[in-house]
Design a protein around this nucleic acid. Structure first.
Lengths: 195, 195
DNA sequence: CTGGTTCCGGAACTCGTAGTTTCGTATTTT
DNA sequence: AAAATACGAAACTACGAGTTCCGGAACCAG
């Protein structure tokens, strides 16, 4: 499915795309997902609602696009040790989810998942698959280094790692100073048996 | 805050309470939280909407009450070993969240949390606090047995344990056979350093 | 330059749902 | 008996998601 050539008619204005994403991010941070209205997004962006629905088909999709915008999920490179890699990964995840707009949007989207198959597909391909692949690389490096005797259960590890951050933020709203290091040590112990 | 004595006027009908909860649970399982309408709950329960709003003030509260109904969060008693206790706890949590109605309701409610302070308070006192207390007991027993050298970080443990189940169900929808045991061994390793 | 197509902001519109109110009636306490 | 609260049913209000139409602008092919 190659990209279509230039379609007939007036092309879409990139600034409209940017304005929609920016307005959505601002409003998500200010009023949260439940308080987010498409009329408000259109007004803030200085855009007609039709322009929004030309790009996205539902409100959750708009919020998803805004929350994901600019997120790079690839884990940082090799730090030379498993604990270092885990800490770096934790810092990246916590860093993203500490952004109130991203965090609130994501939590709300989790509620929509299971009701909206298309959204579920986007969530899986955009978040879960790259994350699992990144985790697998990270763990494989540790095996190659000899830090791990055998390849651990990547899916379980992924759920435990990401779920821990999610659950913590759900309860405490903010990660305390040093949280990534604590989490990394916890997961390191689970993998290697060293405390 | 003692319970008030009998108020004047006609008392509330217990069967109405039960019918509302039952209808909500059924509909949650059938159409999910997003598809749940208060009119449908009232119709299914054979009840006026006013009777519902006399008991709950918002839709999320109704869903919360229905999802929580009958849930006993106290961890099962002492099995004699940390690994046994962890396995039993995992089985209870996974068992509850495998119920589609409870799972879908809970996921959706997570999205509302952060937007609704009253709901957040209910969530914390109903779920988080008893869970953390139960985890603390479980870990303290392990310390007393000598299985753990010192008391671990209970809050981190709680987030990692519950978050892992949440995240797994979010991605995979169903816990596979043996999932509680795998999770319990993972957490056991994180705590003790034994793999 | 012209006609066809797609875009733009703006506004009006439809439709569904949360939550409130009202009505006539039933059940309880004082 | 009177006051208070409950009940089912239905009408009602308020508001937001998503659609459609407008006049006008930007692009492509001929």
């Amino acid at each position: 499915m190659a990209t279509d050539g230039p379609r007939a008619g007036r092309p879409r204005d990139n600034r409209v795309d940017a304005a929609i994403v920016a307005a959505t991010r601002e409003l998500l941070a200010e009023v949260g997902y439940a308080g987010l209205t498409m009329d408000a997004v259109a007004a803030r962006a200085g855009v007609g609602k039709a322009a929004i629905y030309r790009r996205y088909s539902t409100k959750p999709e708009v919020a998803f696009a805004a929350a994901v915008h600019g997120v790079d999920l690839r884990p940082p490179g090799d730090t030379g040790s498993l604990l270092g890699d885990l800490t770096a990964l934790a810092e990246v995840i916590v860093g993203h989810l500490s952004n109130p707009a991203a965090s609130r949007a994501l939590m709300s989207l989790l509620g929509e998942i299971g009701n909206d198959p298309e959204l579920t597909r986007q969530f899986l391909t955009t978040f879960v698959e790259p994350e699992v692949a990144g985790n697998a690389e990270l763990l494989q490096r540790a095996v190659d280094r000899g830090e791990l005797a055998e390849m651990p259960d990547v899916e379980l590890f992924h759920s435990a790692f990401g779920g821990a951050v999610m659950a913590w933020l759900l309860v405490h709203h903010r990660p305390p100073k040093g949280f990534p290091e604590r989490l990394a040590r916890f997961m390191h112990a689970a993998l290697t048996g060293d405390t």
